[in-house]
Structure formats: structure tokens, C-alpha cells
Design a protein around this nucleic acid. Structure first.
Length: 547
RNA sequence: GCCCCCGUAGCUCAGUGGAUAGAGCGAUGGCCUCCGGAGCCAUGCGCGCAGGUUCGAUUCCUGCCGGGGGUACCA
């Protein structure tokens, strides 16, 4: 779409100059109704105000000067209140198939991020328990957004930020310690706000195997061993889960480094130097109201411990220091209140906070049939990401987390996902791919292969054209999904592509005695396979040859 | 109270200020001599409410109603 749009845009811009019309930003869109053309612009209606003329008259004056039709546009018309509608030529559509086959694995890539470094931070769950469904949505979103950025030419770092110190971890260690004692038949009192999950007992069991009852005497003061053991175990688990989902991080960033390397002290010093912090009631406050926030915030508690804001600010400063042009943070809706403080802090110290793109995704609500499942790591009643993948598979897991706008709550009905897995959209899309592969196998058996570019001229059936027109959109869909951070638009698009392919398949017999037409349709299948596979690659789902 | 997200078909959701608002699931009825029926075709069902901006609003603004999430010297 890029190419054809810029082709038209240039022609139109020349016209505007010639007619002495103002240049204002106008849009091309794909009309919903086929008879309204393949591309349409509202330019004439936008010019109506400034020029004080009726839009249709303006449209006519533009069309008169446009020097169309040409090789790519076969027809132009003025319609409705003043739309200018363009129709693609058959030659343009044939050339598009050639273009896709030529670019192959690279069709859909763009160079918007060339020579730019991007960092995507996501998951960032502390090692206190297995990843849940909620983490799953974030994990898949983050990884996929990173994929999109790579398709736009960015050099991308996937980063996981975590904290293995503090109260949370002490509670974790102590939870394991109590289960350890319990397994050794000691009488224990397990607090309600401790980690209740089964995995705690499993870790404790592992420690008995490793240390027998040797840790009984040192208790309860020395928790450290229990904490480290739990952390290692849980982290191994988390990484395994992520790997299964097809996700690997380039950097695991430990909050502790910020203390050890002086980043925290550095931030405090710079805040004080710039008079951005003051002491009150024994605590150190950030003057965040100076940056448009509603209230000042504590960064150092009266106990001397930092609040989460301070390391978060220090951490983000390292992102700038590491030279990232684009910094993407993905959080769940529960963190919505924390990021304005961090952005204000970063800005206060002179960094360009517009480089940071904060993406907030809404929660996943899990249903067992019609019953809502409450999720909490503390309490035992959560469904883990692993359990979900066990039930529905990796491809379905990824697709389902991606198919909705992240601004929307995601209702995930486990019963439905299990019992109706045959009916779900990922299979619909993968089936289109597998079907094409099957045709290609048959073609090989019959000795038909695509060798003659001229055969493409035989494509003229409306179903063939519809399929090509859908593929023309692909680069623009990628571009927009990347720019707006909306992976669900790609899942949406791929389903549309699969639909037109299945229609084409039903209406147009690919391998016939007409060798030339067979070649042409085979080329169309190859192109469709490429576009589907490229889309799947970005989403991180597999492109099966058969299923 | 204040802040953020969401209210579109029976259900789950798409919808870049445009011309007749779409898809999947569910329901009903069709389509296999032949490349994979995990498919295709056909039927139904409608933008939470009230104002405003605009030539034009599901889309932007304001208020209200409903659901979710925040609002700590927890993260």
C-alpha cells in the first residue's frame, strides 16, 4: 500500500501546486464497499472549507489535472459527497504478486527504525511464584511488539527487570522455611498472608532432599538460604515457561545493581543538587508537583529505605545512558499510577521522556465456564501460564493474548478454549497455510511449477483480484501496528486474508490442465503463503505445512 | 472524592471524523466425481444515555449511568 499511496500522493501534491490549493494532511482509506474503489481520499471535502467551494467541484478540478489513468490506476471517479475513488489496474495487481515473491521473507518490512536502538521491558515479575495468565498476556504482547520493531529495522533489546531483595522475598523465604519444617513434622503456624501455593511445598521438599534436616538448627534467623533456593527454583521455572512460549530475554536486570553501582545515590545527589528534593517528616520527597503531578512523592522513607520510585527512576536513566532511542515499558493496569512519577523524575533530570512509550494492558479475567476465577499469587487458586499452555497449546495461547486490543479486558474462558479449540481463529489461519502447502505438494507431483512470470497476466478472476488486493495491504498493516503498538490489528488482518484465500480456493481450481493458468494461480498461492508465514512469524505462532 | 481503561449483534470482540457499522462463536438452512469440509454459501440479531463541535460522530469534547483498575513512607 505504501508504494501505491505515495505514487498517488505525489501526483496529487503536484496538482495542488498547479491549482494553487493549500497542502493539508489528508488520508487514503480502503473503502468498505467494493464499488467505491480500491483506494479513496477525502481531500476534496477537506479543501471545501478553506476554498469556499463545493467539494465535488474541487474533486472535479483535481481529477481533471491528475493525469490518470496510468499503469497502476485504471480508473478515477468522484462519488458521494466528494470522495475521489481510485481503482487498481490489472497490471498493478500482477506486479504486486511478482513483488511479493521477490521480497519473500522480507515482504512487509520497513526501514522506519533503521540505525535506531529500541528496548522493550516486559514481564518483569519478581521471582515469587510461577507466571500467571496475566503475565502471559504481557509476555506475549512484549515479545510481539519487539518483533514488530525488528520488522521496522530497529535493533531491539528485550529486557526483564526484577528485584530479589526486600520484604516480598523475605516472606517468600519464610514461607518455604515453614513448609520445610512442616514436612519435617514440626508444628507450624502458617500465616494467611504468606505464599500459599503448592510450589512452595515443592521447593521445601527439594531442600529436604538436598539438606535433609540440617537447616533446622539455624532457624529462624537465617533465612537467606531459603530465599536463594526459592529464587533460583522459581526463576528457573519462569525462564522455562517463557522459553516454551518462544520468548527469550537479552537482559535480566537486577535492581540490586542500581544500589551496588551507585545509580541510586547518584539520583539522590542529582535531585538534591537541582533542588528537586526536600526533607519532610524524616523522609525525602521528590518535588513532583513542579512537573505537573498532583502531589509530591516520597522517594526515601524515614527508615532510610527507598520507595519503588527511586530505583525505577534510576533504572530508566540507565536506559537513556545505554543509548536507546525508543524505550517501551509494558505494564499491567495495576501499575498505572506508578509511571507518571517515574516519567516526571526522568524529565526532572533532563532526559527526553518522550522517548519512553508506556503501554498499559488491561487485565485478563479468567473464566471456568461462566465462573470467574480470582487470581492471586499469594493465594493458591491461580491458573499458571504453563497450565494454560498444557490445555490449549502455545500457538493458541499466543494468538488469544494478541487478538484483542490491550486496552480492553480480556475474558479468557478456559472451558471454551479447551472444548472449542478446533473452532478457534488460529486454526482457521494455520489451516489456510497448511492448505497451500498441500497444493504445493500436489503441484510438485504433477510437475507444475511457477517459472513463467508472464503467466500472471492470466489472473483476472474477481476472487484472484480480491486476494491480491488484500495482500497489497500487508505492509501498511505492519507499519500501523508498529506505530500504534497494536498487534491485534495483525491478527485481524490475517484472518481477513485467510478468508479471502479460502474463498479463492473454493472458487478457483488451482491445478488444472491449463498449464499457464495453473502456474499463475500457483504463484498466487505462493504469495499468500509468504504473507501468512510472515504474519505468523511476527506473532510468534507456527506456520504448519500440515495439520 | 479524584485519576486511567472499557460499554458496538444472544456471547467474545474489530472498526485510522466519512459514503450501506463488520468478524468469530452460538442458532437455522444449503454445498463433497476432483487440489485438505479445521472449508465455502445463505439467513437472523445493533453503536449505554443526554448534550456539544463538524458539511459529516460508533470515532473528538462535556455530563450522567454501568463494569474494571488505581489513588501509600507496598511493588
Amino acid at each position: 500500500m505504501h508504494l501505491i499511496e505515495s505514487h498517488l500522493q505525489k501526483k496529487i501534491d503536484d496538482c495542488l501546486d498547479e491549482l494553487n490549493y493549500p497542502h493539508l494532511s489528508y488520508a487514503f482509506e480502503i473503502p468498505k464497499i467494493e464499488t467505491h474503489g480500491d483506494l479513496s481520499t477525502n481531500l476534496a471535502m477537506l479543501l471545501a472549507g478553506p476554498l469556499g467551494k463545493p467539494p465535488r467541484q474541487i474533486a472535479q478540478s483535481l481529477v481533471d489535472k491528475l493525469d490518470l489513468p496510468d499503469k497502476q490506476i485504471s480508473r478515477v471517479e468522484i462519488a458521494g459527497p466528494g470522495f475521489i475513488n481510485f481503482f487498481f489496474s490489472a497490471k498493478f495487481l500482477h506486479d504486486t504478486v511478482r513483488h511479493i515473491l521477490k521480497l519473500n521473507r522480507n515482504f512487509g518490512k520497513n526501514a522506519q527504525g533503521r540505525d535506531q536502538k529500541a528496548q522493550v521491558e516486559f514481564v518483569s515479575a519478581n521471582p515469587t511464584g510461577p507466571l500467571t495468565i496475566g503475565h502471559g498476556r504481557q509476555a506475549v504482547l512484549g515479545d510481539t511488539i519487539a518483533n514488530f520493531l525488528e520488522w521496522s529495522g530497529y535493533e531491539v533489546i528485550r529486557e526483564y527487570y526484577f528485584n530479589n531483595a526486600g520484604r516480598q522475598m523475605r516472606v517468600l523465604g519464610d514461607s518455604v522455611r515453614l513448609r520445610y519444617l512442616e514436612l519435617l513434622r514440626e508444628k507450624i503456624d502458617f500465616p494467611e498472608d504468606y505464599y500459599q501455593g503448592e510450589y512452595i511445598t515443592n521447593i521445601a521438599r527439594g531442600m529436604i532432599e538436598k539438606y535433609s534436616d540440617a537447616l533446622k538448627g539455624r532457624l529462624p534467623e537465617d533465612l537467606d538460604l531459603f530465599i536463594r533456593e526459592a529464587e533460583n527454583e522459581i526463576f528457573r521455572d519462569i525462564k522455562q515457561t517463557l522459553k516454551r512460549l518462544g520468548i527469550s530475554f537479552d537482559v535480566y536486570f537486577n535492581e540490586k545493581d542500581l544500589y551496588e553501582k551507585g545509580n541510586i545515590d547518584d539520583v539522590i545527589r542529582r535531585f538534591k543538587e537541582k533542588d528537586l528534593a526536600y526533607e519532610k517528616e524524616g523522609a525525602l520527597w521528590f518535588r513532583s508537583t513542579a512537573f505537573g503531578l498532583e502531589q509530591d512523592r516520597v522517594i526515601l522513607k524515614s527508615s532510610g529505605e527507598p520507595t519503588y520510585r527511586l530505583p525505577d527512576i534510576a533504572y530508566h536513566i540507565t536506559k537513556f545512558e545505554r543509548g536507546f532511542n525508543l524505550i517501551v515499558d509494558i505494564f499491567g493496569a495495576d501499575h498505572i499510577a506508578t509511571y507518571p512519577d517515574v516519567l516526571a523524575g526522568v524529565k526532572a533530570l533532563g532526559y527526553d521522556e518522550s522517548r519512553i512509550k508506556v503501554l498499559i494492558h488491561q487485565f485478563v479475567t479468567l473464566y471456568q465456564g461462566s465462573e470467574k476465577v480470582k487470581m492471586s499469587t499469594r493465594k493458591a487458586n491461580f491458573v499458571t501460564l504453563d497450565e494454560l499452555m498444557d490445555e490449549v497449546g502455545v500457538d493458541v495461547t499466543r494468538w488469544f493474548f494478541l487478538m484483542r486490543n490491550m486496552d480492553s479486558h480480556l475474558n479468557f474462558d478456559l472451558v471454551l478454549a479447551k472444548t472449542q479449540s478446533d473452532e478457534n481463529p488460529v486454526y482457521y489461519n494455520q489451516y489456510a497455510h497448511a492448505r497451500i502447502c498441500s497444493i504445493l505438494r500436489n503441484a510438485e507431483e504433477k510437475g507444475i511449477s511457477f517459472t513463467d512470470m508472464n503467466s500472471l497476466n492470466r489472473l483476472e478472476n474477481p476472487n484472484e483480484f480480491q486476494l491480491i488486493k488484500k495482500m497489497v495491504e500487508f505492509p501498511a498493516v505492519i507499519e500501523r501496528s508498529t506505530r500504534e503498538f497494536t498487534p491485534h490489528q495483525l491478527t485481524q488482518y490475517l484472518s481477513e486474508l485467510s478468508t479471502v484465500f479460502h474463498k479463492f480456493y473454493t472458487e478457483c481450481w488451482v491445478l488444472s490442465t491449463d498449464k499457464e493458468l495453473s502456474q499463475a494461480r500457483l504463484a498466487l498461492c505462493l504469495a499468500t503463503k509468504t504473507v501468512l508465514a510472515n504474519g505468523f512469524a511476527i506473532l510468534g505462532v507456527s506456520a504448519p505445512e500440515s495439520m
